[in-house]
């Protein structure tokens, strides 16, 4: 198992270095940091001195290596827009986005998977058809429209929930959490619902298809013939057989909302990474954008590794270590 993890990490390494290269290219060729730092009036000697101090007069390959080295140490430079270290900015924004993404994904899995199983098991009932139609509608509504509608109904109309921001937060070390205060929790509801509804609908539909597939197999027929209880047939046997693609989708969705919940965060002015990204994009804040790119790559590579590991737990056929099992022979 350890070998498996190490080999997967080694496979991910080239991908990660490529992404770092792209981030580096952004730095090296989009805008000139020296001009930005010196402002309007400077002499050629000042320019050369600054470039030398920043190491920009060295060959590109040396600069790239130094960039990788700095990245590995969590140094992403200083934001042009806010004049603060990028790493600190990201660390400040990450908790908000992570809590939102985790809540939305947990909700979508907790609702989406049972709904998918239900619509597969009761595929001939009208309720299943209605639920699926609702899912289809939810998949077609754009996020900004859904978010705005929810604000209109629950904030402006009913005054039940706040329309923007994160509410009060509690700091635990460097992590700020809104999960421990009432206003934080109330603020979380609408953005999490907005993000989660789309994911939930996707998961429901995938779960349904995978379950129908699994329920149609010969071994489920034989499980029925053996008189196994329904719960065991649907959960233990069909469910586990349907699970690998569902876990994969849920993980990729989670990565997606962690890295790209830009629209939702904008609509709700959620102080997370997505909002930081869109603001930095407007200001051409290259250090933040480059660091964001690398962070996104790291998130997806980690999630892929987690999916691979969980898949081998779910499906023993994927475990290479089992190939050595002594095959039994007929006497």
């Amino acid at each position: 198992m350890l070998l498996f993890v190490v080999s997967r990490i080694l496979q991910a390494l080239p991908v990660f270095l490529c992404v770092v290269l792209v981030a580096f290219v952004l730095f090296a060729f989009v805008g000139d940091p020296v001009l930005i730092m010196l402002g309007q009036n400077y002499t050629e000697a000042q320019r050369a001195a600054t470039a030398h101090r920043l190491g920009l007069d060295q060959p590109l390959i040396i600069q790239y290596c130094r960039y990788v080295w700095a990245t590995l140490h969590g140094e992403f430079g200083v934001s042009y827009r806010l004049s603060r270290p990028v790493a600190a900015l990201l660390a400040e924004r990450l908790p908000a986005t992570a809590e939102l993404a985790i809540t939305a994904t947990l909700l979508s899995v907790a609702v989406g998977v049972p709904l998918g199983v239900f619509t597969a098991v009761h595929r001939r009932r009208r309720v299943a058809g209605i639920l699926l139609s609702i899912c289809l509608v939810a998949l077609s509504v754009p996020t900004f429209l859904l978010g705005t509608l929810l604000i209109l109904v629950f904030s402006v109309g009913l005054h039940w929930l706040p329309s923007f921001g994160r509410g009060a937060v509690v700091h635990i070390g460097w992590w700020s959490t809104g999960l421990l205060t009432a206003s934080g929790l109330r603020s979380l509801v609408l953005p999490a619902a907005t993000l989660g509804l789309y994911q939930k609908s996707l998961i429901t539909r995938l779960t349904r298809v995978e379950m129908l597939d699994a329920l149609g197999t010969e071994h489920i027929r034989f499980a029925r013939a053996r008189g196994l209880p329904r719960r065991s047939i649907y959960v233990t046997h069909a469910g586990r057989n349907a699970l690998v693609p569902i876990v994969t989708l849920a993980a990729l969705q989670f990565g997606g909302v962690l890295a790209f919940s830009i629209v939702t965060e904008s609509v709700f002015q959620w102080p997370g990474l997505g909002l930081l990204f869109i603001q930095s994009l407007g200001a051409a804040d290259i250090p933040v954008l480059a660091a964001y790119l690398i962070l996104t790559a790291a998130i997806f590579l980690t999630l892929n590794l987690a999916v691979d590991l969980s898949s081998t737990l779910i499906d023993p056929r994927l475990r290479s270590s089992l190939r050595g099992f002594p095959p039994a022979r007929d006497r």
């Binding site: 010969e218 071994h219 034989f222 046997h237 586990r240 057989n241 499906d315 056929r317």
Partner: peptide, 8 residues
């Protein structure tokens, strides 16, 4: 082969 669950 198809009558037995491949995961258990």
């Amino acid at each position: 082969l198809s009558a037995l669950d491949p995961l258990y």
